[in-house]
Amino acid sequence: MQNRLVGWIGTGVAGLTLAGCVTINIYFPAAEAEKAADKIIDQVWQLKPGAKPATPPAQTKGEAK
């Protein structure tokens, strides 16, 4: 009796795992896409990775703020 229960649970877990794999492949990987976008934009706009503005600020009259 217990063995059958364990068997059912095992089947359930396996089924969910398989479904999870399919899900991972179907859903859009937003975080990875953002990383890819950053890489491409940094290259197209010639930004140093981590730098915020696309062009260095023109005015450098001392410290702002």
Partner: peptide, 10 residues
């Protein structure tokens, strides 16, 4: 995704 990142990095 790009639309957001272009604007963020502008």
């Amino acid at each position: 995704t790009f639309a957001q990142r272009w604007i963020d990095k502008a």
